[in-house]
């Protein structure tokens, strides 16, 4: 590099994913240093590209960049990395940072027109929500070719430069859902800690039941998503939370066989009221991690089911308080 302000530098890169890269991916999957998994934006030379070599465009998120360079093993090519604030291609496209303006500016800043003779860029299909291909062509003369959704399909795609319908589709298979679980867990970690502390310092809450409801939403839900009945994420969560609440309700009902029937029944009922909305709130929030929920659908769900969750949870808490008050007053 000749200087920090010289953008017209072509950095070398390879297709090798080293131990350090794998460690970086692992940390990213656990949301550790979440915005720190970056690649310097600019132009990269993979192998020994010539002025006729293809140009691929990526985001400056290590998981995106590494997936691309790994898929291009053995192909001399250029990779143009956009500045997306360390965010992956699809999310950045949704925000517009993987976008028309950034692409046009990056083409100019790197002097790409002098580096290659041709005028074609291959973009990941999932960058399309941010990039108006026809406007990029108008402003830079570069034609845009949308490649497949997954970088791993690139070798097959590059044989014909025609994507099969399958390469164009986004799925959400078990593997893709499971890799999200660590991030989900990290997100609820503070709540889990508070629940455990509250339980330890005086039994203010019953942590096993609440932890079970939370883990149902963060761990079980991503795994079971396609097999849970109903369409809405909230109702799927209520069902899953209800199943998880059942054993706790049963234990509450059976553990005090000598108590009054109404006390045993309401004890069980508190779990059936409070636990499902905890799970459902988490599963509703999982919509943003999926590959298929629409804004219209999620908005409708929020209006339809947040009040239901609040009422169930509120009723459960009210019932708990009433039961405690009656017990203290010696009513039972």
């Amino acid at each position: 590099m000749t200087g920090a302000t010289d953008h017209r530098v072509v950095r070398p890169t390879t297709s090798a994913i080293m131990l350090g890269n794998r460690w970086d991916h692992f940390l990213a999957r656990w949301a550790i240093n979440r915005s720190g998994h970056r690649v310097a934006p600019g132009l990269y030379a993979l192998g020994k590209p010539t002025a006729d070599s293809p140009v691929f465009v990526s985001a400056n998120y290590t998981l995106s960049f590494d997936a691309l360079r790994e898929a291009l093993a053995g192909r001399d090519s250029y990779i143009l990395v956009l500045d997306t604030d360390g965010i992956n291609v699809w999310c950045a496209a949704g925000k517009g940072t993987f976008g028309t303006d950034e692409l046009v500016q990056r083409i100019e800043a790197t002097g790409l027109k002098d580096v290659v003779h041709h005028r074609t860029l291959i973009l990941p299909q999932l960058g399309a929500p941010g990039v108006a291909a026809h406007l990029v062509t108008k402003r830079t003369q570069f034609k845009i070719e949308y490649g497949p959704v997954r970088a791993t399909d690139l070798p097959e795609y590059l044989k014909t430069h025609q994507a099969t319908p399958e390469m164009r589709r986004v799925h959400f298979p078990l593997r893709d859902r499971i890799v999200l679980i660590p991030v989900e867990l990290v997100a609820v970690l503070p709540v889990l800690i508070v629940v455990i502390v509250l339980d330890l310092i005086g039994g203010f809450v019953s942590s096993p039941a609440i932890i079970a409801a939370i883990l149902a939403g963060t761990v079980l839900f991503p795994i079971l998503l396609p097999w849970l009945p109903t369409h809405a994420f909230s109702t799927k969560g209520l069902i899953l939370g209800g199943i998880v609440a059942l054993p706790f309700a049963l234990i509450a009902f059976l553990s005090n066989p000598n108590a009054a029937m109404w006390l045993r029944a309401t004890g069980a009922l508190t779990w059936l009221l409070t636990l499902p909305p905890i799970t459902a709130f988490i599963t509703l929030n999982f919509t943003g991690s999926t590959t298929f929920t629409s804004r219209t659908g999620v908005r409708r769900e929020i209006f339809a089911y947040i009040p239901v969750m609040a009422w169930l949870f509120g009723a459960g808490i009210a019932l708990t308080i009433v039961r405690a008050a009656i017990k203290i007053l010696g009513g039972a």
Binding site: G94, F233, L284, N285, T287, G288, S289, T290, F292, T293, S294, R295, T296, G297, V298, R299, E301, I302
Partner: peptide, 8 residues
């Protein structure tokens, strides 16, 4: 827009 309840 994003179909994400957390963001909304």
């Amino acid at each position: 827009g994003v179909g994400c309840a957390a963001a909304m």
